[in-house]
Structure formats: structure tokens, C-alpha cells
Simulated scan of single mutants.
Amino acid sequence: MTDQNRKILVLGALSAMARESARVQAGKGASLYLVGRDGEALRAEADDLRVRGAGTVDTLAMDLTDTIQTDTILANASAALGGLDTILLFYGVLGDQAGAETDPGEAARIMDVTYTSAAQWVLAGARHLEAGAKSRGVLMTASSVAGDRGRRSNFVYGSAKAGLSVLMQGLAHKWGGLDDAPRAVNLKLGFVDTPMTSDVEKGGPLWASPEDIAAIVDRAIEKSGPTVYAPWFWRFIMLAVRATPHFIFKRVNL
């Protein structure tokens, strides 16, 4: 399968990383189906992608936490694109950790957006790719290094991303034992300069741009293992974080 043949569904298509990833794929001639909440913004993004060289570009405005018709939407996307072999899930919400600890509604919002609904889309996407026996099919999620170890600053969000990562690990294990199966790829993102991190102080070598992540996504679509730290050095940072004994870790303000 060449890049020009890729038929890509982007869930959370208006996030900064999703936009840049779609633009890279459009430049290779891929066809795309964009799903997000703002219909006008989606249409503008679709026009931009066509100019960049995309094939078919269709859009759907919806709240992705509404997971009642996931299978129908996937079938519609496949019909619009003339097939569907790549699914990119790029949405979630960091939320307010302090608020989540005291307000059940805020905790539920973080968990529903970041894990519960995302998990439903992952499972629906897996069903679709399995039914099509897409040996080069790819299901990719944007998770986070926050799920590697609970930290006082964001453990509600981190727990949701940890759940998503384990779901993808299990799917990768299932498909890894089958012939002619798709690939499940889970990106574990470090610090990325996006609107979601607008309230976080930025700067330094640990911060990546959406363009950096889009390049990683591009490589992972074609070839990667089931877990991709993005950028790569976070694998070693989180190895150290996980290995730190609790009696030391509890004194670290992270």
C-alpha cells in the first residue's frame, strides 16, 4: 500500500497534532475523513487539505463522546473514502486536577472524554479493520506518558491515559498473534506545545511541537512497534520515573 492509497479517519481532527498529521498525509495524496465538533472549522481544514494534495476529503461534525453509532460512522467514513485502512484518534482533555478531586462532574468529564469514549471508538475501529482483513491497516491512538506513573499533578488524567494505553497493548497483543492482521500503535506523548497545554509553562528541550509529532505519526503509520514514545527520549525518562522508589518519588514535585 502506497501513501497515495491511504484512506484515513481522523477522530478529533481539529486538535493541533491531528491537523499537522492530516496535512502531512494530505501532502502524500491520502484521502481523509475528519471528525470533530466544529463543522465550519472542519470544512476550512478540508479545503486546506485539498490544496495540499489530498484525495477525497469529507467531514463530520459531532461530539465524539456520543458513541452510540460508532460502527455506523465508521461504515460511512469507509463508504465516503472508498475504503478505510488507517484510524487516528487524537482527542482528550487534560482538565483540572484539583477540580477533579473535589467535583465528580469534572472527574467524569476527564474520564469520559479521555478514556471511556475513546475506548469505544478504539473497539469499533478494531472491529472495522478486522472485518476488512487489512494487513496494512493501522489503528493509532494519542496517549500520554502521564499514564506511566501516577503523579500528584495530573493523576486523574493520567489514569485515563493509562487505561487507553493498556487497551491498545491488549489489542496489539491480540493482532500480533494473527496472520494478515492490522497494527495497533499507541503514541505516548510527552510535553507538546498545543492549546491543551496553554496554561503550562513551556520552554526547553523536552517540549515538542505538533509538527514534530506529525513526523513521528507519519513514520509510525508505515512501520513501528505497538508503543511509540513521542519524542523517543521519553522512553528513557519514564523508565527512570517508574524505577524511582516511592520513598524518594513522594518528595519530588511532579
Rank of each mutant, 00 (worst) to 15 (best):
K174D: 14
V192H: 00
V192E: 02
G176E: 05
A133Q: 12
A107N: 14
L139I: 10
F191M: 13
A220M: 07
P195D: 07
Y115I: 09
P231D: 04
S21G: 06
M168L: 06
D47E: 15
G137D: 04
D48T: 13
A46T: 03
T65Q: 13
V10H: 03
T114D: 09
G53Y: 08
S209D: 09
Y91N: 04
S15D: 11
D63S: 12
V228K: 00
P245F: 13
T86N: 06
G163C: 04
V138F: 05
L129A: 02
E20R: 14
A208C: 09
V113H: 10
A230K: 01
A230M: 02
P205S: 15
A16Y: 03
A215F: 12
A16F: 05
D218H: 07
Q4C: 11
A146H: 06
A22F: 02
A108M: 08
L89E: 12
R37I: 09
D63A: 13
D193Y: 09
L32K: 03
M196Q: 15
S165G: 09
R242S: 15
G53P: 15
T56M: 11
H246M: 11
K7M: 01
L171H: 02
I8W: 04
A214H: 02
D212T: 10
A44K: 14
A22Q: 06
F247M: 08
V35Y: 05
G170H: 04
A98C: 05
A126R: 07
E101D: 14
P210L: 01
A118D: 08
I213P: 11
I73M: 12
A80H: 07
Y229E: 03
V217T: 08
G176K: 10
G225E: 02
L60W: 13
V113Q: 06
V57H: 10
G99E: 02
K188M: 03
D48K: 13
A107K: 08
V57E: 06
F233N: 06
A230W: 03
A119P: 11
E130D: 13
G177I: 04
L49E: 03
L164N: 03
W121I: 04
T197Q: 08
K28L: 14
A41E: 05
I68M: 11
L239S: 13
R23Q: 15
K250D: 07
V145I: 13
G53R: 02
I221F: 11
K134L: 12
L178C: 14
D38K: 11
D148I: 00
E211D: 13
S144M: 07
L11V: 01
Q69P: 07
R235V: 11
N5E: 14
F155Q: 12
R235S: 15
K134Y: 15
T141Q: 08
K161P: 09
W175Y: 09
G92R: 02
L32H: 01
L94I: 14
V217K: 02
A162I: 00
A16D: 10
E130W: 00
V228G: 06
A208M: 08
F90D: 12
A162D: 08
A124W: 00
H128R: 02
G147C: 03
A131L: 11
L187W: 01
G176Q: 06
D85F: 02
R242D: 11
S224Q: 03
R6S: 10
A230N: 03
A80W: 05
D179F: 00
A13W: 00
L89F: 07
G176F: 05
K202H: 15
T56Y: 11
I237S: 00
N5L: 13
A230T: 01
